[in-house]
Simulated scan of single mutants.
Amino acid sequence: MFTGSIVALITPMDSKGSIDQNSLKKLIDYHVVNGTNAIVAVGTTGEMSGLTNEEHIDVIMRILDMSDGRIPIIAGTGANSTTEAISLTRCFNNTDVIGCLSVTPYYNRPNQEGLFQHFKAIAENTDLPQILYNVPVRTGCDLLPHTVARLSQIKNIIGIKEATGNLNRVSQIRNAVNNDDFILLSGDDITALDFMQLGGKGVVSVTANVAANKMVQICNLASEGKFIDARHVNDCLISLHKALFIETNPIPVKWACKILGLITHDSLRLPMTTLSFSNKKIVQQALIQANLL
């Protein structure tokens, strides 16, 4: 349930910025049909920072209801306040959520001891499996391998989404953790296949929002050790991996979902704005190269 192609699902909104329930259901059905291994609901790609707490919880519960047991759901429950992260996590203690993805506290820039205590406190308030999420470029702090190793000793901290793009982190974390069951997931589509070849077990993917079947193929082939075949599939997605980050995520991927007919509007909430005209051409060309348009 915590390996393979896991989509970092966007949160579709209508032209007024309200949650678009019809598009949300369409997205879930798309991932079920294409074999996506799991959905991360309301993570950073799902614009958690742009939703109220009530909306955050409501969207995850709606995704649970719409998925109806057809695909595992991982709740995004990170926050820069430890108290808030604990509160969000507790909301899903008695639901069908299979686990939580918790990003490092953003803006606060805690030291390594602060990061350890933050995640330890969250884990102590739930029995749900916890996946750490390290993305320094967005948060301003870096969860280092020796801290990951300390956290891995807490029984319900089961893995990490590592989004530095630094492939050296795979061996550094594996050597530090000393636990073969600890799951390493890539959080960087561009380097995800190399990450898996070095021992990672999958990817929490932005690209999977628009290329679900191809991302599943890549992960399945990688899990079978067929890396040459996996690379053939991945090669046609390289331009797309890059184009989906030509502006701040999830701006490009929302526009891509719209032109593919997966959602009705590419609306975002301020301070996020829609994709610029010049970059639309780049994303469109990448979708064509990936045989998606």
Rank of each mutant, 00 (worst) to 15 (best):
I158P: 00
D194R: 14
I131L: 11
L144E: 14
A208F: 00
S152Q: 07
I122Y: 02
C219Q: 02
E124I: 11
I183Y: 06
G199S: 15
E113Y: 04
K120L: 06
K120D: 05
C219G: 05
N209A: 01
V148T: 11
G165W: 05
Q217A: 11
C219I: 12
P136F: 01
Q153I: 07
K161A: 02
D188A: 12
P136H: 02
A121I: 12
P136R: 00
F182G: 08
A212P: 00
P129I: 06
Q153D: 11
V148G: 05
E162P: 09
I160W: 01
K214Y: 06
R150I: 11
K155Q: 11
V216G: 12
K120Y: 07
V137R: 03
G140K: 02
D194I: 07
C219D: 04
T126N: 05
I122G: 03
L144D: 11
L184G: 07
F116Q: 02
N213I: 14
H118E: 13
T164N: 09
I173R: 02
V137I: 15
F182T: 13
V148N: 04
Q172S: 14
D180W: 14
K214W: 06
Q130C: 14
R150D: 13
A212V: 02
N166H: 05
N220Q: 10
G159S: 04
N134S: 01
I218C: 03
R169W: 14
I158D: 10
A163G: 00
T164G: 09
N178M: 15
L132I: 08
V170R: 04
A208I: 06
N213H: 14
I158Y: 04
G159T: 06
D142E: 13
N125L: 08
R169D: 15
F116I: 06
G140Y: 01
T126L: 02
C219S: 08
H146V: 13
A121M: 11
K155H: 13
Q130D: 13
D194F: 05
L115A: 03
I160N: 01
K201H: 05
F182A: 10
G114H: 06
F119T: 10
A123P: 00
I157F: 06
T126F: 01
A149K: 04
N179S: 13
D142C: 11
L115R: 00
D189Y: 03
I158N: 09
Q217R: 03
V204S: 01
R174Y: 13
I160F: 00
C219M: 05
V206Y: 08
I131D: 01
I157W: 09
Q117R: 04
M196C: 12
D194S: 14
V177C: 10
I160V: 07
V137D: 02
A176T: 15
S205Q: 03
V203T: 14
D188M: 07
T207D: 11
N213Q: 15
Q172W: 14
L151C: 12
A149L: 04
